[in-house]
């Protein structure tokens, strides 16, 4: 079901190329854009009550909270909702209250964190390959090679990465890891999903989450907007959202197309070898041409002098 036309074309294209280049690559598995094995989280915004326990758990599990721990009561402070917040170096997830209310008059809350793109812009932007998409789906960052150019922050369409500007000697990019260690080594689920009292987040295989989201929307078409945010945006993300309020009213980037971000620079990068090979030929040609002109000039003068 998740195989769309582009995937089909991709596979078909790969097969076509393989057929052209012959038997050696024919046996290789075709490169798939979307893996059925990727994990993900489906966030049902219609259930969120804005308790911010996920923020508390996130800071705790990521070692952002003080060692003695933070009181959960500190997160009951509703005044933070008066401002629009984004993720930063100290908060890998934030709950925002963009303004709209549901049919019962309760405000809608939006829990934000890294979207874990299928084809992450940050990874294609990084000049030291500090980002990579793990086979399990999380987009991970390796501080040990980062030079701190912050191009990933320019590139991210979801305004996710934060930077620890206040750190003099070891500033770094900070963002959600989908609790990589918990989900891969301890067989647990991300801390935010674990603590959520309302079951807003469902952790599972991305392909199954999309099925689940479809079922939810189908079962209550009057309640939900018919849009799974993250299914196609920028080529798809592993963190998905469904909502009872249109996404554009909730501050989501709804002007994003389906094109994976790395594709935006691929055309330019593929023109690089053309310049590398074409330019010297043209320039040396020009050089030879102008110098030839000079030589014939000299010969002409010689003729005139001799004549």
């Amino acid at each position: 079901m998740t195989t769309n036309r582009r995937d089909f074309l991709k596979v078909a294209g790969t097969a076509g190329v393989a057929a052209l280049v012959g038997g050696r690559t024919a046996g290789a598995a075709p490169v798939r854009r979307i893996s059925d094995d990727w994990m993900g989280v489906l966030t049902d915004l219609s259930l969120c009550i804005g308790c911010r326990k996920c923020e508390w758990a996130c800071r705790k599990v990521n070692g952002l909270a003080p060692e003695e721990g933070e009181p959960m009561q500190a997160y009951e402070d509703k005044s933070v909702f008066e401002q629009r917040r984004r993720m930063d170096a100290e908060n890998f997830t934030v709950v925002d209250r963009p303004g709209p209310v549901d049919s019962k008059g309760n405000p809608i809350y939006v829990k934000k964190q890294c979207m874990h793109c299928n084809e992450p812009a940050c990874a294609s932007a990084c000049l030291v390959a500090a980002f990579h998409k793990a086979p399990e789906a999380p987009v991970l960052y390796d501080e040990s090679v980062c030079i701190g150019c912050r191009y990933c922050m320019i590139a991210c369409p979801f305004y996710v990465p934060g930077y620890s500007y206040d750190d003099v000697f070891t500033p770094a990019v900070k963002k959600c890891t989908m609790c990589f260690d918990l989900i891969t080594k301890e067989d647990k689920i991300p801390a935010c999903a674990e603590i959520c009292p309302e079951g807003v987040m469902t952790f599972g295989k991305r392909s199954e989450l999309i099925e689940l989201a479809r079922e939810k929307i189908r079962a209550a078409p009057d309640k939900y907007v018919d849009h799974i945010y993250g299914e196609y945006e920028v080529g798809g993300t592993c963190w998905l959202y469904i909502s009872s309020t249109p996404f554009e009213e909730l501050g989501f980037q709804t002007d994003l197309d389906d094109v994976p971000r790395p594709a935006l620079t691929k055309t330019f990068l593929s023109a690089v070898p053309m310049v590398l090979i074409g330019w010297p030929a043209l320039l040396i040609g020009a050089y030879a041409f102008t110098n030839r002109g000079e030589e014939s000039d000299r010969e002409e003068t010689k003729h005139i002098e001799e004549g």
């Binding site: 990874a123 294609s124 932007a125 990084c126 000049l127 030291v128 390959a129 500090a130 090679v145 980062c146 030079i147 701190g148 150019c149 912050r150 191009y151 930077y163 000697f169 070891t170 500033p171 770094a172 790395p262 620079t265 990068l269």
Partner: peptide, 18 residues
């Protein structure tokens, strides 16, 4: 952020898609 790592893209880690 860490200017002393300026040579990293040349000698330590290559982000060729960038």
């Amino acid at each position: 952020g860490r200017p002393w790592r300026l040579p990293y893209p040349m000698i330590v880690s290559y982000g060729v898609t960038s």
